[in-house]
């Protein structure tokens, strides 16, 4: 099967650098799937689940913020946070979700509400990715 060169980097370090067959991420407007020989393309990322197919193996991850850039030669996923499903601490994500829900209830202004909502969506993405 044809592959493309995929690079995933986060502020905590490089996550993946190698060939992949397929990449699905949540962009601002919804899920986007990248296959080999995609046209040059740029989008900003939302918060959600990401799926990478490497050598026929599906790997899922939670991914939030950043951008996706497809150029002629390679695909770069520059994420703010990126965690493979097996690295996610499900209990922690659950606690974060409850905490975020509490904050949404008690938010006093718009900014606080936005922050709490972002936190909740991150927690939900983690829980979903962890399965």
């Amino acid at each position: 099967m044809t592959t493309f060169h995929l690079q995933i980097v986060t502020p905590d370090g490089g996550f993946y650098d190698g060939d992949a067959e397929k990449l699905i991420v949540r962009a601002l407007g919804g899920d986007v799937c990248i296959l080999p020989r995609h046209a040059p393309y740029v989008t900003a990322l939302g918060t959600g689940q990401a799926t990478v197919v490497i050598d026929g193996q599906r790997r899922t991850a939670a991914c939030a913020g950043g951008m996706l850039a497809v150029t002629k030669d390679d695909v770069r996923l520059v994420a703010t946070t990126f965690e493979w499903a097996e690295d996610i601490d499900k209990n922690r994500a659950q606690r974060a979700k409850e905490e975020a829900e509490r904050r949404i209830q008690s938010a006093k202004d718009g900014a606080e509400l936005e922050m709490a909502k972002a936190k909740l969506s991150r927690a939900l993405a983690r829980i979903k990715a962890a399965g």
Binding site: L28, A44, M67
Partner: peptide, 11 residues
């Protein structure tokens, strides 16, 4: 040329 989604400005 690059394609932007949803728009270059938003990106």
């Amino acid at each position: 040329l690059l394609e932007y989604e949803p728009s270059s400005q938003a990106v």
